[in-house]
């Protein structure tokens, strides 16, 4: 379990992280979302003690990471795939990191096999592709058989096979009772992997809830209706508080009414329905809706936010 308590990080005049508190629970994959510059990486670095908080602290299973006598088995991390000396082989990199806790060759070879780098383990990291570097970073994170994993953009540079592999790996690891905290800018990937979400924007927590709740709270939910009497049904729906999002001939998208209400209204008004379905928005549209005014680096056509 990771407990972030009233955490702030100030750089000059900029509050990168502003009095943030949240808990990452054991046994689930928790996703950490936010626009660029929202404070994700800064928060993750403070969890690891790499950056010093201006205020507040972080407890990892009840203790500060810096006080841990068993750092690698308490918490494995991947911050950037480039945290490797290019002059050294993958094998020697893992040996050097593992040696700090007396983790030997058996485990090194085990994690190398887990991430699929057997054939290149003696090669210099300089010759690694981004995907291979990412796998080495994941191997480093897994080295100490950690109880907690903190991963910043773990699927960066991975091919579709690799992405599916890490998705299943993370779910398996969470099921074993580990705490998994990961950030990703790939919404569709996050939607498939994470059960719980913490959303950060401009250094503040915007949402801390289950994936399901986050998506269902979005106003982007709508009911898809297909009816041959679409014209009359539209007036029925609007007079009962429905909002017509779009209409294309017989096909209607209506929000602000549940699918049950829509079905009941159809029956009561003798309107034939060919299709009736709840449509949940993607995580992406739910996220966009929440963070609309929270983006630090706007495209130039966006409105300048104060």
């Amino acid at each position: 379990m990771i407990e972030v308590r009233e955490l702030s990080k100030v750089y000059g005049d900029t509050k990168a992280v502003d009095n943030v508190s949240f808990t990452v629970k054991t046994g689930v994959v928790t996703g950490f979302l936010g626009p660029n510059g929202a404070g994700k990486s800064t928060t993750m670095r403070m969890i690891l003690g790499l950056d010093k908080p201006t205020h507040g602290d972080v407890l990892i299973n009840g203790q500060r990471y810096v006080d841990s006598r068993t750092p690698l088995s308490l918490l494995g991390s991947l911050l950037e795939a480039k945290s490797v000396d290019k002059g050294r082989s993958a094998y020697n990199h893992l040996r050097a990191v593992g040696a700090t806790m007396g983790i030997g060759k058996t485990r090194i070879n085990e994690v190398i096999e887990m991430v699929g780098l057997e054939s290149v383990k003696k090669k210099n990291a300089a010759k690694f592709s981004l995907g291979m570097s990412q796998r080495l970073g994941i191997a480093t994170a897994l080295l100490g058989d950690p109880e907690i994993l903190v991963l910043d953009e773990p699927v960066n540079g991975l091919d579709p096979d690799g992405i599916m592999w890490i998705r299943n790996l993370l779910k398996d690891l969470a099921r074993q009772g580990r705490t998994i905290f990961l950030s990703s800018h790939l919404m569709s990937e996050m939607e498939l992997t994470a059960e719980h979400l913490i959303v950060i924007g401009k250094g503040k927590i915007l949402a801390d809830m289950s994936m399901h709740e986050f998506i269902s709270r979005s106003s982007q939910n709508y009911v898809q209706v297909v009816s041959p009497q679409a014209d009359s049904f539209v007036s029925v729906l609007t007079s009962n508080g429905g909002i017509i999002r779009t209409r294309d001939k017989n096909s209607i998208e209506v929000s602000a009414l549940s699918s049950a209400t829509v079905g009941d209204l159809a029956l009561a008004n003798q309107i034939a329905l060919h299709q009736l379905a709840d449509v949940a928005p993607s995580l992406e549209s739910a996220f966009m809706e929440l963070t609309e005014d929270q983006v630090s680096f706007h495209g130039h056509n966006a409105e300048e936010s104060k």
């Binding site: 054991t26 068993t70 088995s73 007396g102 485990r107 100490g144 109880e147 009772g177 580990r178």
Partner: peptide
Amino acid sequence: SYTSRFRDN
């Protein structure tokens, strides 16, 4: 919760 097998290292 999970206990690392290297907890004693």
